[in-house]
């Protein structure tokens, strides 16, 4: 492939490791795999696979920037970057400067980030010690319902009855879902209720944050159309989702050097 130097972003998250190769304009390659011990080796393998798929040589790599909880676990990184700044940089660039609010649903985080007109982080909110509304929540429900996450969006669309999932605690939600199943409630209705519950959590976190401007949802769960609709319904506004929302943070890291985005040398 004929490209000059490429930037690589490695997002070492709590549930998945995402790698993006970019020419600074677009995602040339995005790969991800589940987080497991030996994150340095996993990151190395993802990068090698990505470069190979694009027929690129290691010498063509301009810089590697890591982000996410494991950002300091990859010793070959040129730069480290916090995932909130990476998220802001990635979405702002990919939305062509349109994004002003980002809702990010990660493996164990839920974040709301507001940007100024220059794409700089104005403010943000993030959940603390609670997995409600995060990717873990979805994984748990997926296991309980024995249903792949990829089917959640379509199934929620088939929901015929309103069910309340009142709990905002993952642990209690588990027992609540088991009791709903025992009562014969359809899994479509439970999934719909789950989406509504997460949407309420998002709305609570948005709080008094002004959100008249373009809102972008990213992170793995953003691929779930049912969840997007539930959040739109709760916030009473449109929600934008870019292609490959799970790679936006890694993309933001990958363009870090180009943007002079806030980074630290490891």
């Amino acid at each position: 492939m004929k490209v000059g130097k490429v930037g690589i972003g490695l997002d070492l998250g709590s549930t998945a490791i995402k790698m993006v190769i970019t020419d600074g304009e677009k995602i040339l390659c995005g790969l991800s795999t589940a987080t497991a011990p030996g994150q340095e080796e996993i990151g190395r393998q993802l990068i090698a696979r990505g470069l190979e798929s694009l027929d690129l040589k290691p010498e063509q790599v301009g810089s590697i920037t890591t982000t996410g909880y494991g950002k300091k676990l990859y010793s070959a990184a040129d730069l480290n970057m916090d995932e909130i700044s990476a998220n802001a940089a990635g979405i702002f660039r990919l939305s062509r400067g349109q994004a002003r609010t980002i809702i990010n649903i990660g493996g164990q985080d839920l974040k709301v980030i507001t940007l100024d007109n220059d794409g700089k982080v104005l403010d943000f909110r993030m959940n603390d010690k609670c997995a409600a509304g995060t990717g873990r929540f979805f994984e748990l429900v997926s296991r309980l319902l024995d249903t792949p996450l990829s089917e959640f969006g379509d199934l929620a669309g088939n929901s015929g009855h309103e069910v309340q999932l009142s709990s905002t605690c993952v642990v209690f939600a588990e027992s609540e879902i088991i009791s709903l199943l025992a009562r014969g409630v359809a899994r479509e209705d439970i999934i719909h209720a789950l989406h509504a519950s997460v949407a309420r959590k998002v709305a609570a976190m948005m709080g008094r944050t002004p959100h008249d401007d373009a809102i972008y949802l990213d992170g793995g769960p953003a691929r779930n159309r049912g969840l997007v609709e539930a959040i739109e319904d709760e916030l009473l506004c449109d929600i934008m989702v870019l292609d490959d929302p799970q790679f936006t943070v890694a993309f933001g890291a990958a363009i870090a050097r180009q943007l002079s985005a806030p980074t630290d040398k490891p």
Binding site: Y69, D82, E83, I84, S85, A88, A89, F92, R93, R96, G97, Q98, D109, N117, D118, G119, K120, V121, L122, D123, F124, M126, D128, K129, L259, S260, A261, P262, D264
Partner: peptide
Amino acid sequence: NLLTRLEAYSHTLPSSGLRPPSPRERG
């Protein structure tokens, strides 16, 4: 979790932040 927030917060403080985007980046 706290460190992530503090790092991001640190970057929102004056004398830090993203380079203003070019007119092209702003569309």
